[in-house]
Design a binder for these strands. Structure first.
Ligand code: DGT
Ligand code: MG
Ligand code: MG
Ligand code: ZN
Length: 582
DNA sequence: GCCGTTTTCGGCCCGACTGTTTTCAGTCG
């Protein structure tokens, strides 16, 4: 059972406990543990074997026991006991917007509803609205919730929604009612996927602004509307067949900093900051920081216009949004050991690109010129070397031809270098698609898996480790192989991979393509702790995809990466010195 | 259920909007 499977079960335990009516703090404890384990880079089985489960924040004696049972037996007593009283399927019903634990519990107790179909039937019989506490609107809202649930709403790729969000921000800025507009939430934290857009606006006329917003042509539906907060579905996608859930929050200018902090999150980060506020006799909310009088009756405002003031109030320096996940950033800030995160302007080149020699769209020269426009000093041309026909992979002969072609192009360039390279397939047995005597002629060798994705964890790990041991392999491309919303990562021992990368001096890639972002935050952080170097590469298949770099930098920042951790911040000569021979 | 340079017991973030309520619980951010 892997981390995500364990997390999923802990979350289901939380759901069922909530439906059962357990203390919300107990439920909260399970949700906290769920979240931590979802983001844990170490394999939970290893943590168990080392007897260190209780060292995971939020995991104590009870949850550690649950995890132990899950790992050793595939099931746990607590869940089985819960399921005797509460059907496991009820946790799915809770995913419908507007249905929480209390309503689900009621529907089950009174009508034995356990599935969506049953619920629909019940509503259409209109038995519900006769009951106290339920009316026609309740019925209508549940039906709407079911419809939305069925539209199968995946999370959006950050890279895909980015231009849409920016255009919307610009549009709002133009309104005379608006002072500041920031897109907050997971978007500002630069998570690789975004559940919804959270837009913060300051205005001296909040009510008028809310009315203006819901009258925009982009609005598909208004779900909720009050004087400070609106929830809508925006039109999105071709023919607007899709929609983006959007929360708009309006505050007065003096609350901008506090609201920015609140709305940026993450939720767990907010809770921890507020808790520290309580210890200092402060109340922190989206309107500001307030001193609580000894009688606890009066609040005196002590800050909130600037985001910094929130941190300052609890004795901290400003923390970059990308690492606000309550994963140790608050402790680090307190001890003045926040990382100096890498920035876009630190990037001096791109080490994973495809030209029209393989499956890219543009010529080598165009890629070089585009990179030069972006103030880079170098690129590495890494066309596929692969037997897969569809990607038009290069064989040994064409690789040699390309080396000569690049030599010619390099002569035409000033202050810029193209490194010769390849993205060579790692075969099923860990050998490479090109022989060593070809690899040694290249400046840089990127190796990646593009076939046989379904090996056992052991086989897959050995496969990549073998590739790393090859003296010519400099970089492992997209190390976990995931395609967001499409393909799960390979079964692989990431910790072992990271340790081996350190041992062999192999660079791990942070692939910046929006559907990959691989490595992702938690693994980047682990790699950094081991002293493994990484490369942020776009894997661009056209010149405009060079712009993916920013998403790679964002992801690196989420992994606490600093300039020194990333090799393509180095000037050309230093980078060359770092690469393995050939 | 978890946790602790004030605690091993007693807290646990704080607020907005909705529907059906005559005063607020439920759900969500
Ligand atoms: N203090 C506090 N803040 C919250 C809570 N729930 C949400 N927030 C804040 C922090 C979140 O980042 C922000 C936006 O909420 P969302 O539900 O949209 O979450 P977020 O954008 O982080 O993730 P998402 O990608 O939308 O799933 O609101 C909460 O329970 N308490
Ligand atoms: Mg959000
Ligand atoms: Mg939201
Ligand atoms: Zn590639």
């Amino acid at each position: 059972m892997d981390n995500l499977e364990v997390a999923k079960i802990l979350n289901q335990i939380a759901d069922l406990m909530e439906i059962k009516g357990e203390s919300k703090f107990k439920v909260g404890a399970y949700r906290r543990a769920t979240r931590t384990i979802e983001e844990l880079p170490e394999n939970i089985n290893d943590v168990y074997l080392k007897d260190k489960l209780e060292e995971i924040p939020g995991v104590g004696e009870s949850i550690a026991l649950d995890i132990k049972e899950l790992i050793t037996k595939g099931s746990c007593l607590r869940l089985s006991k819960l399921k005797e009283k509460i059907p496991g399927k009820l946790s799915e019903l809770m995913e419908i917007e507007g249905l929480g634990p209390k309503k689900v519990a009621f529907l089950f107790k009174k009508f034995h509803v356990t599935a969506i179909k049953q619920l629909e039937k019940l509503i259409k019989s209109h038995k519900l609205k006769e009951l106290f506490g339920w009316g026609p609107k309740s019925e209508q809202n549940i039906l709407e919730g079911i419809k939305l649930y069925r539209r199968f709403r995946e999370r959006f790729l950050l890279g895909k929604i980015y231009p849409y969000a920016q255009a919307l921000q610009e549009k709002l800025r133009k309104s005379p009612l608006v002072e500041k507009v920031e897109i907050c939430g997971s978007f500002r934290r630069r998570k690789e996927t975004i559940g919804d857009l959270d837009i913060l606006v300051t205005s001296k006329q909040p009510k008028r602004l809310v009315d203006f917003f819901v009258s925009l042509p982009e609005i598909q539906r208004v779900n909720a509307k009050g004087p400070t907060k609106v929830n809508v579905l925006l039109k999105y996608g071709a023919q607007h067949q899709s929609g983006v859930e959007t929360d708009l929050r309006v505050v007065r200018p003096e609350s901008f900093g506090a609201a920015l902090h609140y709305f940026t999150g993450s939720k767990t980060h907010n809770i921890e900051i507020r808790r520290r506020g309580i210890e200092k006799g402060l109340r922190i909310n989206e309107y500001g920081v307030f001193k609580v009088s000894p009688s606890k009756k009066r609040l005196t405002r002590v800050g909130g216009a600037k985001e910094e003031e929130i941190f300052k109030a609890v004795g901290l320096p400003w923390i970059p949004p990308e690492i606000r996940e309550n994963e140790g950033e608050i402790e680090a800030a307190l001890e003045n050991r926040l990382p100096k995160l890498i920035e876009k302007r630190d990037i001096k080149g791109d080490l994973h690109l495809h030209s029209d020699w393989s499956d890219g769209e543009d010529s080598i020269l165009d890629l070089a010129l585009s990179a030069q426009k972006r103030k880079y000093q170098y690129i590495a041309l890494t066309d596929h070397a692969s037997p897969i026909g569809i990607i038009n992979g290069l064989n040994a002969h064409r690789v040699l031809k390309q080396i000569l072609a690049i030599k010619e192009i390099n002569k035409k360039l000033r202050g810029f270098q193209i490194l010769t390279g390849t993205e060579v397939d790692i075969n099923k047995d860990g050998s490479l698609f090109l022989p060593d005597k070809i690899l040694e002629k290249l400046d840089i060798v990127v190796a990646g898996i593009h076939s046989s994705f379904h090996l056992s964890c052991d086989q897959m790990t050995k496969r990549i480790v073998k590739a790393m041991k090859n003296f010519h392999v400099d970089i492992i491309a997209h190390p976990t192989g995931r395609l967001i919303n499409k393909r799960e990562p390979y079964e692989i021992d990431e910790s072992a991979l990271i340790k081996e990368a350190k041992r062999t001096g192999t660079i791990l890639e942070i692939n910046a393509a929006p559907q990959r972002l691989d490595l992702t935050g938690p693994y980047i952080r682990l790699a950094k702790e081991y002293g493994v170097r990484m490369a942020i590469s776009t894997d661009a298949h056209s010149t405009n995809q060079l712009d993916y770099m920013v998403f790679g930098v964002d992801t690196a920042r989420r992994g606490w990466a600093e300039k020194n951790d990333i090799v393509n911040t180095l000037p050309f000569e230093e980078l060359k010195g770092l690469l393995k021979r050939g």
